[in-house]
């Protein structure tokens, strides 16, 4: 299960890195969230304050291998939501900072979508792998 370990650590590092700048600059991240024009300003602010901590928690749990099924499921849900938000922004012609890794100040676009999908694939792989590994352990205990 080396592949699972490598996968979850890579995914975890991505999430910790993604949270770092948002935690340092919450107001800029709030602006990035508001610019998607999906949420009213107050809701955008709440999301901007909560989301980086969720990303950090997910990242740390994945890196340290704690509650991996739950963390990878959370990561998959987040990446799905991020992808949908980015695609709708492109669809509506919004030329905005994607808010993915704040310091990089990337604009929404196809490269961001591709990266999001790649991370989503990795996250789902970690989720399925962790569930499969847990089933193996259960079988060992039973037998």
């Amino acid at each position: 299960m080396k592949a699972l370990t490598i996968g979850r650590v890579i995914l975890g590092v991505f999430f910790v890195y993604a949270s770092y700048d948002k935690l340092l600059h919450p107001l800029h991240f709030a602006e990035a969230v508001a610019n998607y024009r999906l949420l009213p300003p107050l809701a955008a602010s709440l999301v901007a304050n909560a989301l980086p901590m969720i990303e950090l928690a997910c990242g740390l749990l994945l890196v340290f291998g704690v509650a991996v099924p739950g963390a990878s499921l959370t990561a998959s849900v987040l990446l799905t939501v991020f992808g949908a938000a980015i695609i709708q922004a492109m669809w509506r012609g919004l030329d905005i900072d994607c808010g993915c890794f704040s310091a990089a100040a990337e604009r929404v676009g196809y490269p961001v979508v591709v990266r999001d999908l790649a991370l989503l694939g990795l996250s789902l792989g970690v989720l399925i792998g962790s569930l499969y590994e847990a089933r193996g352990r259960i079988k060992q205990i039973i037998l």
Binding site: L27, A30, E31, N35, P41, L42, S45, A48, I96, D97
Partner: peptide, 15 residues
């Protein structure tokens, strides 16, 4: 931190 409920420039995508 006093950042809750605050959006600096809401809905203003930079040109």
């Amino acid at each position: 931190r006093g950042t809750l409920g605050v959006v600096p420039h809401p809905g203003a995508p930079a040109p």
